[in-house]
């Protein structure tokens, strides 16, 4: 398929959890025995209701949380003894609210903060900062105060500020929340570009339209357990299970299912796919009708 999201995944496993359990203090466990592997170069959507454990799981990937039981492996090595600051070289984590990290007087300084913490040489810090600003189209705001920029720009600054550390793996927690259509797709395109360059991207979101359109892989959590983890198209086949989890399928997917009995492809994920399939169907009918007469 021409419009299949391109995947640059390799066979190297970059992240792995083995029977991961986690509980906040004395509370009931938030994660209940999660075992999974993520290949280097994957683009994975991570979905589930609030409280299903998405953020809790993701925070284990960069060591912000440590398993109560089980293991997290980064490129095959247990990260137990590695501090967050060191893991940040490999795993970047962008928090949900950009205002929870922005503090600098200029956008440039904000983006240089991470690389500087990594102890890089000043020339390298500058190089990475400029490149990150370029990738996220922030160069014209380099000398602005990031805290007073608009929400869409603050969001991009917060992502660029993590990307500038050049982590192989980039985790984003609901990066499109509160953004309009244009900003959302602009951001998704930029993430897709990073994915094409070989970065592993883990996207936490509630928006199944984005998953359908952009992420080739999808992971669904429910009550601290891994409910589904597969190629996105296969995950979407379990629509009853998804609905049970209160995950709203895109209108196109629902429509494809309703129209399947009359011959439309059931697994259409995006508008062009459904449009093509419906058009094909009509064309075929016309041929049959013409032949019949």
């Amino acid at each position: 398929m021409a419009d299949e999201p391109m995947s640059s995944q390799t066979d190297t496993i970059c992240l792995e959890t083995r029977d991961l359990w986690f509980a906040y203090g004395d509370n009931p466990p938030a994660l209940r025995g999660i075992s999974l592997t993520i290949r280097a170069g994957d683009f994975v959507g991570l979905v589930g209701q609030n409280g299903s454990g998405k953020t809790t799981l993701a925070k284990h990937f960069n060591g912000l949380l440590r398993p109560t039981q089980g293991q997290v492996l980064l490129y095959g090595q247990d990260i137990r003894d590695r501090p967050v600051g060191e893991l940040a070289r490999t795993v970047g984590y962008v928090f949900q609210n950009p205002d929870h990290q922005i503090f600098s007087a200029t956008t440039r300084e904000e983006i240089a903060f991470g690389p500087r913490n990594l102890g890089l040489e000043e020339a390298e810090v500058q190089r990475r900062t400029e490149q990150a600003m370029e990738h996220f189209d922030l160069t014209e705001y380099a000398d602005h105060q990031p805290a007073v920029l608009g929400f869409g720009l603050r969001r991009k600054v917060s992502i660029a500020a993590v990307y500038s550390m050049r982590p192989q793996i980039l985790i984003l927690d609901e990066p499109t929340a509160g953004l309009d259509w244009h900003c959302t797709h602009d951001l998704m395109e930029r993430l897709t570009a990073l994915h094409r360059q070989g970065h592993t991207i883990i996207l936490i979101t509630h928006d199944m339209r984005l998953i359908a359109q952009y992420t080739p892989r999808c992971m669904v959590l429910r009550e601290g357990k891994l409910l589904l983890y597969d190629d996105t198209r296969k995950v979407f086949e379990h629509c009853d299970l998804l609905r049970e989890t209160h995950i709203e399928l895109p209108q196109v997917c629902e429509l494809a299912r309703e129209l399947a009995p009359i011959g439309v492809r059931r697994d259409a994920l995006t508008v062009p796919e459904l449009c093509d399939s419906y058009a094909d169907l009509i064309a075929r009918r016309e041929v049959t009708n013409a032949g019949g007469h």
Partner: peptide, 23 residues
Amino acid sequence: RMREIGLAVPQVSELADCLNHRF
């Protein structure tokens, strides 16, 4: 026009538009 402004339309409206272009 909505795209140019940067706004979403319902997916079914996108589909209608897509089919209209086709047929």
